[in-house]
Amino acid sequence: MGAVSNSPEAPSLIDAVAERKELLIAYVPHAQALGFKVVDAKPGEAWLKVPFDAKLVGNPATGVIHGGVITTLLDNCAGVAVATALPELRSIATLDLRIDYMKPATPGLDVVGYTRCYKVTRHIAFVHGAAYHEDPDDPIATTAMTFMLGANKAPPGAAFGVNAR
């Protein structure tokens, strides 16, 4: 492993990115193409935002954004929550994603995703989350996901711009 885990006490991913939390999604081309922003991140928790944009619209009659935008926001947000929950860098891959749509997003408004990784086992991480405009208690959608740890051959830190030689 590289600089991050060579130190006697390997800093977590969250320490590695320090105040530059935008790095948590800077190396995900799809997140960049959709304009995702990191609102905040703590160990095992993440908040991402997708600013409203006309290209996200899934229903031209109503102007409501596509459900897939919410799925993508929560999937990426959960990936960050899992990565920051882990004591060391590991590759992660979504295994299962359940999403429930409570109400359509309001046209013109940004959407915030919040996810919490509440359990990590040897091979699997478990996440809950929700998407909302302003009030987390008035969700647009909620989600439950599982992630596989060490699932692929990608360099573990590559998705976060951390060098793990």
Partner: peptide, 22 residues
């Protein structure tokens, strides 16, 4: 624009989800 992991490379799971929904 739909790449999630540039190192593999692999399509973003969210884009796959959006595609399945579509």
């Amino acid at each position: 624009q739909i790449i999630g992991n540039a190192a593999l490379p692999a399509i973003h799971g969210g884009a796959i989800g959006a595609f399945l929904e579509t």
